[in-house]
Design a protein around this nucleic acid. Sequence first.
DNA 1: GATATTTGACCATC
DNA 2: GATGGTCAAATATC
Length: 231
Amino acid sequence: MKSEDCTEEEISCKSTLTFEDGRGSYKRRKTSHSWTRDTPALIADGHAWRKYGQKIIHNAKHPRNYFRCTHKYDQACKATKHVQQVQDHPPVFRTIYYGTHKCRDYLKTSELLLDCTSPRDSSQFINFENVNCMTNKQEHPFFASFASSSVKEEVFVKEDMPTTDHMVTSDHNHSSPCDHLVSRDLTAFESSGPMSGFSSSIDQYDHDDVFSGMIAESYFNIYNEVLQYGF
DNA sequence: GATATTTGACCATC
DNA sequence: GATGGTCAAATATC
């Protein structure tokens, strides 16, 4: 794959190159870092998205919708997502997230969650106790907001992915302090019924994308918990 | 008037 | 040439 080694930055850079006619050079994102989520309904994930396109996909019953972060320009947020209904009965919507959110929109809802003070409620939250093994809390205040609960994220690592100090692996033989972050355990949500219909995977990423993916993932779960049960 | 959505066109990749 | 991702003008909504 020619663009296999392209970073998100490079792809974004290429996609914004302009030609004489004012149109850019549009690179496919097939090999860029992404993670996928299937949901039974279209549910807000806490970010402000703006639709910028819709396409009929070959051999697909439903069109694919293209969204970018509302703050693409004012906060240089490069996150995009593609949403497509992949199943009718029951309806399943597949959302593929690309890029990382640089915007701070999610803070609004995290504040809402922080208003929940009872011990019982807090048991529903996610534990990022050791989050600093991946990044610092000051840089990502959202992460710090959920420093007292636990969720696990299963991560699939490409063999040719470069490993760094921050790299998360799916090898559970490694007793890294980050292990609890990389294998998914949704026991906290299993009793939630509808939530069990969700699934997700991180297909490709770098260490920054892992972090953002977990943020979005965790945020997504909590956000919907709040929506459903009014915690 | 500002912002969001729709939709056809453009371009890269397959 | 077919397909998928993005742009941007036109249109809709608030």
